[in-house]
Nucleic acid binder design. Structure first.
Length: 244
DNA sequence: CCCCAGTCCTGCGGGC
DNA sequence: TGCCCGCAGGACTGGG
């Protein structure tokens, strides 16, 4: 399931789209139910076509495309979504396609087996409302040890549950929470309030170690084969899993 | 503030 | 080879 390392790998993989101008966007025809595109496909198309992609970004587990004029396209892969610049794992679950003005540029594809993901075009105001600090906590790779400590010690929830809360820190999901707590030698059921400063520091260090290592290995491709990088190749961090 | 169950959707594998 | 069902656990919502 795409968590921070997988979405960061997707982001790096689609970097070639920066500087390109969007020529066409379309849902692709599939036998499965279409994914959610917001706003309507008509409005989405009007606001996206002709715009240049100025940068890519990531907010937690979401991939961001910054468009000229200030609008942003947010790709939220949820369980099984994939952003690709190459052939998808199969044609049947290809959901969305973005083509560029230069004919030689390969299209940006969105593939999603379960179809729980969504693609949303927002202006900067809506972006801040939906993905600002109120809704999404500090990135798990950006948060300071002190901030993580105070946030963990402020909750009565189990530390693993707390780490899955994207308002506490963004980007950690079930897989990496399991891995990083094991590396930190903290039992997942420990209550946040009961953690010492030293234990929080271990969690902070383990978070960085695990997530950075996972990015180096281009994420985890599980036995279901769902997650792949932007070129439809397997990640390799699954070979280094300790407990998941 | 927190927790839990339910919802979205599809494919897979266990049990029979 | 075939059905039924639980499961994967990301984000969100409604009720307690």
């Amino acid at each position: 399931m795409p968590e921070l390392p997988e979405v960061e790998t997707m982001r790096r993989g689609v970097e070639p789209v920066v500087g390109r101008r969007i020529a066409k966007v379309a849902r692709t025809r599939t036998k499965v139910k279409p994914i959610q595109i917001t706003p309507s496909m008509r409005t989405f198309t009007r606001r996206a076509v002709g715009k240049k992609i100025e940068a890519t970004g990531r907010v937690g587990k979401r991939l961001i495309l910054h468009l000229s004029g200030g609008d942003r396209i947010v790709i939220e892969p949820r369980m099984t979504g994939l952003a690709l610049l190459a052939d998808p794992p199969d044609r049947g679950h290809l959901r969305f396609r973005m083509e560029f003005e230069s004919p030689g540029d390969s299209p940006l594809l969105y593939w999603d087996r379960r179809g729980l993901g969504l693609i949303r075009l927002v202006d900067s105001k809506e972006f801040d409302e939906r993905y600002g600090p109120e809704k999404v906590g500090p990135d798990a790779l950006m948060i300071s040890a002190g901030d993580l400590q105070s946030r963990l010690q402020a909750t009565r929830r189990a530390v693993k549950v707390a780490l899955l809360d994207q308002r506490l820190t963004a980007g950690v999901g079930n897989l990496y929470a399991s891995e990083l707590l094991h590396v930190a030698r903290i039992h997942p059921a420990r209550i946040g309030k009961g953690l010492s400063r030293l234990e929080c520091a271990r969690i902070h260090a383990a978070t960085r170690e695990v997530l950075l290592d996972a990015i180096d290995h281009e994420g985890s491709t599980l036995s279901d084969g769902t997650y792949r990088n932007a070129l439809n190749q397997d990640g390799s961090y699954q070979n280094l899993h300790r407990v998941y």
